[in-house]
């Protein structure tokens, strides 16, 4: 089984979000970049398929050279080879078209992407790859088992979960649950040394128009100070929620 894990290079979850150039660009100053958390769960599940079922695992990113340390980290965790599609990641559809080309050229059986990236939050790339390549698709995937071509997966739905059966080729939008938090791996020294020798291939992009474009960013309005209510006066809390906030 050939697996491709799509890796989005995103600001660390603790990052303060600021904008530059008249609020048109994300300000990367002082920001630490990491593998998108949803992709980290997917990559770890891919490692399981590699170790238990002999799968090969490639990782891919659409981005500039600044994303290479993130790809190296994925190699250090255990991926076999990395691909960087040398194009700035603009809109989700354009990114999906780039990725779909790599998926088809590489004849991957399973594409693992994240349910959403924590920067753009588009939640669209995995579904679009499936739509473009004709593969089956499971979104919000929280468990994945594969036996030959037969797939059993489950997805989170509003208020519960659904168990699905399908076949390869498959694309998933993965998230926590694919593996547990405690299963995530931190690259060790040996992994980091080995990663230096693994291939990181740079692929030139295909032509793809961008369907959407980002015009401007805005930060949420600063909020007023909290109103404190004494624990001995909870009637006041109820009255505030009823009369002032009008939520109960």
């Amino acid at each position: 089984m050939k697996i491709l894990v799509c890796i989005s290079h995103v600001p660390d979850t603790t990052s303060k979000i600021n904008f530059a150039e008249g609020d048109t660009k994300f300000d990367t100053n002082g920001v630490q970049f990491v593998i998108n958390p949803n992709d980290e769960f997917g990559l770890t599940r891919a490692m399981w398929f590699k170790e238990k079922q002999g799968a090969s695992v490639d990782v891919v990113n659409v981005g500039g050279s600044e994303t290479e340390p993130t790809l190296r980290k994925a190699l250090a965790i255990g991926a076999d080879a990395a691909i960087r599609i040398n194009n700035p990641a603009t809109d989700g559809f354009a990114v999906a078209k780039q990725l779909a080309k790599v998926v088809q050229d590489g004849a991957y059986d399973l594409v693992i992407a994240g349910r959403e990236s924590i920067d753009y939050n588009g939640g669209m790339v995995p579904g679009m790859i499936a739509g473009l390549t004709g593969a089956n698709f499971v979104n919000n995937c929280i468990s994945l088992d594969i036996d030959g071509d037969t797939v059993t997966a489950s997805r989170e739905i509003d208020g519960g979960k659904e168990t699905l059966s399908t076949t390869l080729p498959l694309v998933i939008g993965g998230q926590k649950g694919l593996v547990e938090e405690s299963d995530l791996r931190i690259p060790n020294m040996r992994g980091i040394m080995m990663a230096r020798k693994k291939p990181l291939n740079i692929v030139e992009p295909v032509d793809a128009i961008t369907e959407t474009n980002s015009v401007k960013f805005e930060k949420p309005a600063p909020r007023g100070a909290v109103k404190l209510v004494s624990p001995d006066n909870l009637d006041e809390l109820i009255s505030l929620l009823h009369n002032e906030a009008k939520v109960i």
Partner: peptide, 12 residues
Amino acid sequence: AFTNKAFNFTEI
């Protein structure tokens, strides 16, 4: 965008 840490104006 940025998991509710900001908003983004997008043209389609």
